[in-house]
Each structure stands twice: as C-alpha cells, then as structure tokens.
C-alpha cells in the first residue's frame, strides 16, 4: 500500500473518471431546466483564462507554480503539487476536509485562491508528520480510532492541532463562559471549536478522545 504509482488505474483516477461520467450524465437534465426558466442573465465579459506565477511554501519547501487564476489553494495542492493528503469534500467551505494551516492559522483551502497565497507558509497533513514519525495528534487519532473511512481525517487533524494552539493563545469561542478570562481546555470547548469539520462516519467520540488526550483533558 506504500506506493500506488505503478498501478494502472489508481483509486483517485477511478474516482475522477467516475465523477466525469456522473457530470456528463447530469448535463441534459440541467440544460432542460435552464431552457424552461428565464432568459439568460446578461453575461459580464469574462477574459480568456489568465495564468499567474505564484510561490507557495508548502511544509517548509518553496514550490513555484504557474496556475490559472481560478485555481483554489486546495486544487493547487492536490492537482498541481500532487499532494493528495488534503481532501476535497464539499468544495464550498462546509465540511472542513480541506483544512490546512496557513501562516499558523487553519483555513478552508477550498475557499481560497492559490494566487492569494504567494509567499505564504502552508502546512498540510503531509507536513505535520510522516509514517514512522507521526505528529502526536496523528498518533492519537490512530490510537483512539478517530476515523472510519478516513476521508475527513487530514482536515480533522490539521484542525485539531490548531484548536489546541488557539486555546493556548487565548482565542475565545462560542462556549467560553467568560469572555474576559482565558478559555479553558475542556471537552465542550473542543467540540465547539471542531464544529467546522464534519465526519459522515460519525467518529466524533473517538476524535474527541484523541484531541483530549493530546490536550491533556479527560474526555
């Protein structure tokens, strides 16, 4: 399982092919619905695709890219740099699977343009730890079985690492009882702060145990 590169058709390629087929099947229906609706809105004059050079510092390494301006940070990581650890879930900022840490802060990489991160430090799941040298949060997720299918896990772990740092930095949350006091490291705080990361398998209780252990609270 360590190297999939020699497989004729990787799981990812299969998914991409599947997605394309699903899209083409869906088009006729969409076109019909459009035709029966209102006349098309006046289209603004959009230019031809524009390519821009940008340099990301990904996990400590400078990576120069030439990307279409429309490329999200997520697609730059996955499709251009071939770092598929960061996952594309909803692609609209609702699920958190694409969470990465930029200049020390977690963000949804699907809702950010690559060109807007020129010179930024991006930390992805690949940069937190490697097989044989896991980040404590990665090790805790393994220990507590903090996943089932694993698709949301890289985002969960990047978020979890940030949660502990945010509490340490004194950033309040919706459940912080006293806004003027330093927020406590508690199970309620962890739950609230992790609400931007969905897990459809429902591994939440184990995720909570993993984060609690690394943070040093009793779940």
């Amino acid at each position: 399982m360590d190297d999939l590169s020699d497989m004729k058709l990787s799981r990812r390629d299969l998914l991409i092919t599947g997605a394309a087929a699903a899209t083409s099947a869906a088009i006729p229906g969409a076109a019909l619905a459009q035709a029966s609706a209102q006349p098309a809105p006046p289209q603004p004059l959009n230019p031809p695709p524009a390519m821009v050079k940008t340099t990301l510092r990904v996990n400590g390494q400078a990576r120069e890219l030439t990307v279409d301006t429309r490329t999200t940070l997520l697609d730059a990581l996955r499709e251009h740099l071939k770092m598929s650890g960061t996952k594309k879930g909803c692609d609209q900022g609702q699920c958190g699977a694409c969470t990465v840490i930029v200049n020390g802060r977690r963000i949804n990489s699907c809702l950010s343009l690559a060109v807007m991160h020129d010179g930024d430090e991006v930390t992805t799941i690949e940069g937190l730890g490697r097989p044989g040298n896991l980040h404590p949060m990665q090790a805790a997720f393994v220990k507590h079985d903090g996943y089932q299918c694993g698709y949301c896990t890289p985002g969960q772990i990047c978020s979890a690492v940030s949660v502990l740092e945010e509490i340490r930095a004194g950033i309040p949350s919706h459940v912080s009882a006293d806004l003027n006091a330093k927020p406590l490291l508690s199970v309620d705080e962890i739950r609230e702060r992790m609400s931007g990361n969905l897990c459809r398998c429902g591994a939440y209780s184990n995720i909570l145990e993993a984060i609690s252990e690394v943070g040093g609270v009793k779940a």
Partner: peptide, 14 residues
Amino acid sequence: RALLAGASAQLRNK
C-alpha cells in the same frame, strides 16, 4: 459574541 456565534473557526480566520 455575535462573531463567535458565526461560521466555523476556519472561516473566521479568513
């Protein structure tokens, strides 16, 4: 309080 009731931490960071 209003800010903290909105969105997720990832979104509030941006």
